[in-house]
Design a protein around this nucleic acid. Structure first.
Lengths: 263, 263
DNA sequence: CAGTGGTCTAGACCACTGC
DNA sequence: CAGTGGTCTAGACCACTGT
């Protein structure tokens, strides 16, 4: 390996020298993006040995600990795994290849070659009932946004989602376009809210009359029931959603790590 | 805060001074355990501000970066969250309070005040078929362990699990007691295999004749179908399991983080 | 302003893998 | 043996929060 820093020649996010200028992005973060790109582009393939921490540090003109931080975060995201004394390797999981970013209903459906769509059935402000208030950790009666959506693939209904959201300014969502935009992106871009974690419960059941109509199914068809609470990076529960997925048409995918393993 | 090191007086895992003796456990790891204990014991409650990184370092006679590593790992596990300029806080999630360690079928059921049990229906070595070989990343026809288990709560059948395992020495599992021992613990303790990640698919469906009999349900009852591949810390798929959970009796719980969010 | 987490450095020794 | 990741240090400057 040549000891030159290969960085800054024509790339948009550039490593800054020391702390001279205002840093645009942290160095470890830039390296993360570079390594992600290596995988997406196929330069690094599943099972490949990546350069050592010391090598990467030298190559990009950063310290070993900074390079290590970039690698560590990607290990935590399941992209890489390490072997003591041998090196760091690219994982062979689905999660590595496919998405990395955010997989959503929309992308799931697109990936299967179908056309995803969302129809807003209902969006209003209502006072929080006891159940919703408990999940959102607010007082009963506070105004929350209620959003009911129908999810479709190739014009065929797949799921009904009933969400309740609460945050300062949530009432503005009533006027937003929620049919052609991801709620996630909207929250992040317009409201500056980052969603980081979610707790979700799933169980199997049968459709009731209302949902059967919406999903174009016979009453009592098999369905996946989910209840999800989504949290911001500040540990604030921001959304509580209950969904019904048409059993025969939707597969729910999970990636579990470390302490979440259920055996 | 007094600048004394509060460590080493009567505790089992003790911080070592510098690198003089052979370290028993990494310092950041010991601090992790201490902080976990603070939460389990209730000394630190959900929402509490924990001591700063600098304080913890001073208190336990370690550098700030080492204390920070301990905190960072617990943040990644969902125990803490950080706020720039304010401090680090204890999360309010279920995951924080309940388990931390490993939640399993056994503990789930116990937590509900029921008596969990496992009945081994079948355990043999068979050649891997195409589907199993693909999921375990081995050649078709290699001998794998097939394990069929019935899971019960208060003597009532809850789920049927059909697993295939492959690793060097897996044939010894035939002689192990799989009814009164967690498979996870057995793999770790006896075979030195650490399970770190899993991919799982879930969908809703209806029970067939065989499963209905095993689960004491009418044919065509709602059920949760899962397919799981479990990976070791070396990125080796070691188990491929298909399960059927009785829909009315079992709720599947997931905690999703960062890049796994589906919205 | 002092205190917090966020980033970063330039070293160091260790345990482990491979040759 | 040289190379890898695993751990650790004692500093440093930054951006951000509170008062």
């Amino acid at each position: 390996m040549a000891p030159e820093a290969l960085i800054g020649k024509g790339m948009e996010p550039t490593f800054m020298h020391h702390h001279s200028h205002k840093s645009p992005l942290p160095r470890y973060y830039q390296l993360k993006e570079i390594m992600r790109e290596k995988i997406i582009s196929g330069a690094w393939k599943p099972g490949d040995l990546i350069p050592s921490e010391r090598e990467l540090g030298e190559q990009y003109g950063i310290s070993r600990m900074t390079a290590r931080q970039a690698i560590t975060e990607l290990v935590n995201e399941g992209m890489f795994y390490r072997e003591q004394g041998k090196g760091t390797f690219v994982s062979r999981h689905k999660i590595t290849q496919q998405l990395i970013r955010l997989t959503g209903f929309t992308e799931d459906i697109s990936a299967r070659g179908q056309a995803p769509a969302t129809r807003v059935l209902n969006v209003t402000m209502i006072p929080a009932d006891e159940n919703v208030a408990e999940h959102l950790r607010i007082r009963v009666g506070l105004p929350v946004l209620r959003l009911q959506r129908l999810r479709l693939a190739d014009d065929e209904p797949l799921a009904v989602e009933r969400s309740h959201l609460y945050f300062i300014g949530c009432e503005q969502l009533v006027d937003d376009d929620l049919e052609h935009q991801s709620l996630y992106r909207l929250l992040e871009a317009k409201y500056g809210i980052q969603l980081i974690q979610a707790e979700q419960e799933l169980e199997a059941g049968l459709t009731n009359e209302e949902d059967s109509k919406l999903l174009h199914l016979p009453i009592g068809s098999p369905a996946l029931y989910t209840r999800r609470t989504t949290y911001t990076n500040r540990d604030q529960p921001i959304e509580y959603a209950r969904s019904i997925y048409s059993g025969s048409k939707y597969t729910f995918y999970t990636h579990m790590m470390r302490n979440q393993l259920v055996l």
